[in-house]
Design a protein around this nucleic acid. Sequence first.
DNA 1: CCTCAGAAATTGGTTGACCATTTTTACACG
DNA 2: CGTGTAAAAATGGTCAACCAATTTCTGAGG
Lengths: 230, 230
Amino acid sequence: MDDQVLIRLQNWVTNSGLGEGDRLPPERTLCTELGVSRADLRKAYLVLEADGQLTRSVGRGTFLAKPKRPQRGDGMKRTIMSLAETTSPLEAMNARMVVEPQIAQLAAMHATPKQLQELARLSDQMRDATSWSRYEELDRDFHEMIAEAAGNSLLGAVHKIINRVRLVVVWRKLDTTDQRPPATYHSFAEHDAILAALQARNGEQAYAAMQAHLDSTLAMMTAPRTGGFQ
Amino acid sequence: MDDQVLIRLQNWVTNSGLGEGDRLPPERTLCTELGVSRADLRKAYLVLEADGQLTRSVGRGTFLAKPKRPQRGDGMKRTIMSLAETTSPLEAMNARMVVEPQIAQLAAMHATPKQLQELARLSDQMRDATSWSRYEELDRDFHEMIAEAAGNSLLGAVHKIINRVRLVVVWRKLDTTDQRPPATYHSFAEHDAILAALQARNGEQAYAAMQAHLDSTLAMMTAPRTGGFQ
DNA sequence: CCTCAGAAATTGGTTGACCATTTTTACACG
DNA sequence: CGTGTAAAAATGGTCAACCAATTTCTGAGG
């Protein structure tokens, strides 16, 4: 009976056409509209809030959070946080190296022209990033876009989990002298190589390029006292 | 302030040494012990219950659920259910084929003798299974044990997500004439081949054997009107 | 000593009134 | 017409009393 309320609420939200940051009706209104008690509605809100799918603040209202790439709110925040507590940086990188090269190979076959265009745009933006945190954000988008382009939503979600866990777990090198990625940063050329392989629709080459990129990143993590971050 | 209660509760549970099915103290007791209001404790209970980590029933009490293989309660139930709604059977199988052969390869290097022994026991039990549902359960344990033996907890969790999503999504062939797997069921020999490769510590062979097993299963799914399930 | 019905205690679940914060409105003042 | 301030409304959050299901205790009957 409790899951039922959550389902009805999620259906209501998707059918209402509300997007990121939009405000939901007040609890007292929505609960009568859904035909449930206010307490039951609040319980459903609570688990959605724990998953990071909405935010609430007294006096202001209840608002939808990020709509994300797989547009359905997925509710994997708690999974990611829980896994991050029991995962080492090396495990996170190794998991990446198992999954991502094959994802790149699939993407070479499945990526749409629009997705390739978006990847090229991200690659350019990364070169222009004026801070490490901005670069990190774009890099995350780049890799997640490739996973989306692989054309398997489950694989994309799994990649996202691994990548997000890694972002929580992997330390950033704090002793970098630069405030932003230098023009010669190794990942720039490696990202270009991956993108070129995808554009050439060459699966094996994309696999190898992604593997090389991750190898290089792992080496950067392992080797002390130099270079950047991913 | 709300996550804080959840953390404290989880710490309390892990430090209390309670195991599967054990009963927690009554709400009114535990909330004073943790120094929080009963309402706050119930909110924490609610999200844990939504993740399937505990069950409650009025008059009886609150009980811990399955302790699971990665003993830390992981809270990925909602992730699995959400992904299952947007994943097709073919996607689920393809995701498996990306991840599981490499997991088998890693397991060949990392599995402990005790894990290999457990795998052998599961393989025997599968041959003796007297119903499809019992076989299905043992098969799931067999594959998850291999993932655990790969020695990467994040990879293990990812495999578990894929496998659980697949179990929700993939239909079972209902027109099977047999009530239980026949003695000649293809998976028996394939499981043995995987196990043999693991015991021989032969990574490439384990990779190939797992790939062959999944290929055969996929073929079984695709080919109409015959055979069983996995 | 055993059995079993019924009362009492225990325990999770629910409801409605009330609280705290924010936004909106009203209105006086310049 | 603008502006600032206080009152009013709106909205999410909290709490204590009460409800319902279950278990445990008690004592009479045999």
